[in-house]
C-alpha cells in the first residue's frame, strides 16, 4: 500500500461507513437507503446521521419495523435498476427476513438464469461484547456464507469499512455487509481520495513465520494483540484479516498456512459449523502436508450469547485465549 504518499484523515468506523454512503449517493442517484429509524433519527447507531437533510426523504427512507418488507422491497427496486442499501438494525433481525434474503435475493440470479444480478446491499449490525444479550449480539455470518449467491463482508477497521462498502455498492450483486457494533468508535486513517477495496481479497496485517492467525471483523484486533504478546515471547505470527468471508480468499490463507505450518482461526461466532470450520477443512484438504500441528479454533462455545458481563467475557474470543492456544501449538506447553 502506498500509505506514505497518501493524504489521510483520522475518522472512526461509523463515520467511515457514513462517508462511503454519502460518496456513493452523490456519485449515483440510483443509490438510496431504507431501514428502521435511519432518516429522522439517523440510525440507532447514528451511522446515517445527517444523510436525510443532505439527500431528502425519497433517498433516505424510514420504514416500518418490517424486515421482510425492507429486504423484499430492496429486491424489487433492484430488479427495476435501483441500488438499494437496506439497514438491518441488528443482524439478529435478519432471521425475520430470512426468506427474502436466503430464498429470494440470494437465488434470484441463479433461478432466473442470470436475467438480473440483484444489486442489493444489506448492512447488518453484528457482534457482541457490550451486554446486549442473545438476540442483539450474535455473529451470524456463517448462515449467509452457507447460502450460495450472497457476498459476505466483515470489515475490521475504518479504512476497510469505507473502501469495501463502496465496492459492495458498485458490484451489482447481493451483499451482506456486517458492521461490528463494538467497532463503531474505532478510529483509523482513511485516504482522503476515493479508494475501492476489492471484494474477495484478504489482507496480511502482520507477517510472521511461526504460525498463522486468521481473524475477521472484531477478531482481527484480537489476533493482533495476541501476536504482539507472542512476539515478545519470540513467536512470530502472521495475521490475516479475512475482510470478505464469501467469496473466501483461500489462496492467501493457505499460502500463509503453507509458510508457517500452523493455523489458528479466531472467530466470534459459535465454533460448531462456523466459518472457522470451513477454513480448517480447506487447510486439511489442501495443505495437510505442510501442517506441523493440529489446526485450532478460538471461537464461541455452543451456547447463545449470555447477558451477564461476567459470562459474556468468558464467551467471547480474547487475546489471552489466542495467546494460550498459540503457545501450546508452537512450544507444546
Amino acid at each position: 500500500m502506498s500509505s506514505k504518499v497518501m493524504s489521510t484523515i483520522n475518522i472512526n468506523y461509523r463515520s467511515a461507513i457514513r462517508f462511503a454512503l454519502r460518496e456513493e449517493m452523490k456519485r449515483d442517484d440510483r443509490v438510496f437507503l431504507l431501514g428502521e429509524d435511519i432518516a429522522d433519527a439517523g440510525g440507532v447507531f447514528k451511522v446515517t446521521e445527517g444523510l436525510l437533510s443532505e439527500f431528502g426523504p425519497s433517498r433516505v427512507i424510514d420504514t416500518p419495523i418490517s424486515e421482510t418488507a425492507i429486504v423484499g422491497a430492496a429486491l424489487g427496486s433492484a430488479l427495476m435498476g435501483l441500488t438499494p442499501i437496506a439497514e438491518i438494525m441488528f443482524s439478529d433481525f435478519t432471521a425475520v427476513a430470512m426468506d427474502q434474503i436466503a430464498n429470494q435475493v440470494a437465488k434470484y440470479s441463479y433461478m432466473s438464469g442470470g436475467q438480473a444480478h440483484v444489486g442489493v446491499v444489506i448492512r447488518a449490525v453484528s457482534g457482541g461484547g457490550i451486554s446486549f444479550s442473545a438476540q442483539h449480539s450474535q455473529s451470524l455470518e456463517a448462515w449467509f456464507a452457507h447460502t450460495p449467491g450472497l457476498i459476505s463482508i466483515m470489515p475490521s477497521n475504518p479504512r476497510d469499512a469505507k473502501g469495501l462498502l463502496k465496492s459492495a455498492i458498485r458490484c451489482g450483486r447481493p451483499v451482506m455487509f456486517f458492521e461490528h457494533k463494538a467497532l463503531y468508535p474505532m478510529e483509523g486513517l482513511v485516504p482522503e481520495s476515493e479508494e475501492l477495496i476489492p471484494i474477495g481479497k484478504s489482507e496480511i496485517r502482520k507477517e510472521g513465520e511461526d504460525l498463522t492467525l486468521v481473524g475477521a471483523s472484531s477478531t482481527v484486533a484480537t489476533c493482533l494483540e495476541a501476536a504482539s504478546r507472542l512476539e515478545s515471547n519470540g513467536i512470530h505470527s502472521e495475521v490475516i484479516d479475512l475482510r470478505t468471508l464469501s467469496p473466501l480468499d483461500s489462496k492467501t490463507i493457505l499460502g500463509s498456512v503453507e509458510k508457517t505450518g500452523r493455523l489458528i482461526v479466531v472467530e466470534e461466532d459459535v465454533g460448531f459449523c462456523g466459518w472457522g470450520a470451513e477454513i480448517a477443512a480447506q487447510a486439511a484438504d489442501k495443505s495437510l502436508y505442510y501442517l506441523k500441528s493440529p489446526v485450532k479454533r478460538v471461537s464461541a462455545p455452543y451456547a447463545p450469547i449470555p447477558f451477564s458481563p461476567a459470562l459474556e467475557k468468558m464467551y467471547m474470543p480474547s487475546a489471552e485465549k489466542v495467546y494460550a492456544a498459540a503457545k501450546l501449538l508452537v512450544q507444546g506447553s
Partner: peptide, 15 residues
C-alpha cells in the same frame, strides 16, 4: 414472498 417485492418495484416507479 412476491408481495414485498412488488412493493419494491412500486417504490422504484415512485422514486
Amino acid at each position: 414472498a412476491g408481495i414485498p417485492v412488488a412493493a419494491g418495484a412500486g417504490l422504484s416507479f415512485k422514486y
